[in-house]
Design a protein around this nucleic acid. Structure first.
Lengths: 331, 331
DNA sequence: TTGAAAGCGCTAACAG
DNA sequence: CTGTTAGCGCTTTCAA
């Protein structure tokens, strides 16, 4: 605690700049390089990032803000962000806005005060003003998972509506006529868009019926309760499109608990439940988000905007894929 | 971007120290306080944390290292840590060691290089040497979720063995004789301890049979596969104790898929699956970890050790609780 | 209370 | 390639 480059300058008899040079990977006479390396080891020198940051104005940390931390999708994203940024020498500092607009604002302030070099936000609110603070301090922002009307900030999203239309279409093609959707509140962008695709598909076939739209909390309980209602109150329903992971878990539980089964009793298309899909028999047909790609693109944009030669503000729309299993029955 | 306390000193005609004093909540003549506040607002001054950190040697961030980021328990812990520390002005920087000893070492180095003020580790490895680096730099460490033979570092753990013994005992009391366990590899502390409690309980009753011990990956697939084997190869088994959340999901899926049911066909005690337990009918009996308390205790210790008046090295053993549902059948 | 001044440890000109 | 020097923006003695 307290070995500085000055100490190793003393030890080696060299100047500060030489040490600094070496430490930053610049050319130094081989002879000196060895001396420095030795001194570093001997004295147990570790660079002081505070001082470095003060000078370079970079903290080498990225802020990530998600609505809920204990949610499968958030977790996957964070997990991959962590890997991605770590490999570039950046640390990741995470915050959770508890799906609250007020908390979201607070979190952004907090992250900015922590001097993050960039900010990745999975937003709750629509207000674009929450980005004024980071932007005013030249902290690049990337919004993921939803589109907003903020046009100075790049978005990375998937084709929620389209893929949901395709997924629903798949169910229609199998001959189902009473198809339910279990999704989240309409104020949630992804829930809304996924419902939009579902609706579009069914209207095209003249099969739409708003009684079959179940909007609930995005939790297993939400899915469970919704599915129970479908089973009990709408026996004519033969297929269900489920718009997220937590809902999918709950829905499956409800089906199983009632002694019914996927495929035979209910044709199912889930969302995000890659791991689940594999352990269900027959294998679940699901929509799979390209999380790795979302992260890769978002990270690249942020990193490039941090470099700051040009500023990217373009949105990226990635395609999710329908992983076809055996959970849709032809009737 | 660039307004410093010097600027506001100019603006107000006061000295640097006065401004700094005010900013840090110390007494300043009311008259001046107002002037400073005005200038701050007018110039849009925001303190530079780098400079402050350089001086105070505190980053106001805590490093958290978990073996797997996409794991229910890790997530819950992180989510609560985030809340806990945020409320104290600390940020949380998370790392994932991918259950690898080498990665764990790297992550600790990384976190230390990020100048965290404290480190909370859910360890993978047994080696105590990985803590030498933070300790040598006076960064307090708290180990959670497992006990190691490191005695300079406080641990916060639950009574894994005891609660598992109790849980298993509960199954025995209901008259079951062939009771399986689905757990993780023995090298994983929690898996090992939970199995230990199970074994102890069964041996006491003279019911132990090592064929009923299933050690697998801590994933839904792991649980699913293990349960399938139980169903197919050991029809005499009537009850299963499951040692973690992911395994519990997989196990339930397997049971349901085979057209069997919890309670009627299999008596089940799960782990950590608070949310699941509620959506299963009959309600699942589970072991519930006091995550909130784990976090609270760990955070308190870290914070206190950061203050640094005295150094706490005591271990804390918290009690998990058995939430009794209706998933154990009397036979 | 307040102001002046001395660093915290590092980087980046600049000159050699 | 190397050494000198001047800060980065803040906190903190120390006097006043």
């Amino acid at each position: 605690m307290g070995v500085t480059i000055k100490d190793i300058a003393h030890e080696t008899g060299l100047g500060l700049a030489t040490i600094s040079s070496y430490l930053n990977g610049n050319k130094v006479r081989e002879f000196n390089a060895i001396a420095i390396a030795d001194a570093v080891k001997k004295l147990g020198y570790v660079p002081n990032e505070f001082a470095r940051s003060l000078k370079t104005k970079k903290s080498m940390t990225i802020g990530i803000l998600v609505p809920e931390l204990d949610n499968m999708f958030s977790m996957t994203i964070i997990s991959e962000m962590d890997r991605m940024f770590r490999s570039k020498g950046y640390g990741v500092i995470v915050c959770d806005s508890k799906s609250s607009v007020a908390e979201e604002m607070k979190s952004i302030k907090f992250l900015v005060s922590k001097m993050v070099d960039g900010l990745i936000v999975m937003p709750v609110s629509n207000t674009t003003e929450i980005y004024e603070l980071p932007l005013s301090r030249n902290i690049p922002v990337v919004i993921i998972d939803r589109l907003t009307d903020e046009d100075k900030i790049p978005h990375v999203v998937i084709n929620n509506s389209e893929i949901s239309e395709i997924a629903t279409g798949q169910i229609c093609s199998a001959g189902h006529e009473n198809i339910a959707i279990i999704t989240g509140d309409n104020s949630i962008y992804t829930s809304n868009k996924r419902e939009e695709g579902y609706t579009k598909s069914l209207k095209k076939q003249g099969l739409y019926c708003d009684k079959y739209v179940f909007r609930t909390e995005l939790t297993p309980s939400g899915g469970y309760t919704a599915m129970k209602r479908i089973i009990n109150e709408f026996p004519e329903v033969t297929a269900v499109f489920i718009a997220n992971y937590e809902l999918t878990i709950g829905t499956l539980m409800a089906i199983n608990e009632c002694g019914m089964s996927v495929y035979n009793d209910y044709s199912i298309v889930g969302f995000d439940a890659l791991e689940l899909s594999k352990i269900i028999n027959p294998r679940l047909t699901i929509v799979n988000q390209p999380t790795e790609n979302i992260v890769k693109v978002a990270a690249e944009i942020i990193l490039r905007n941090i470099e700051g030669t040009v500023t990217i503000t373009d949105d990226t729309i990635l395609s999710a894929e329908l992983l076809v299993g055996k959970s849709i029955k032809n009737i």
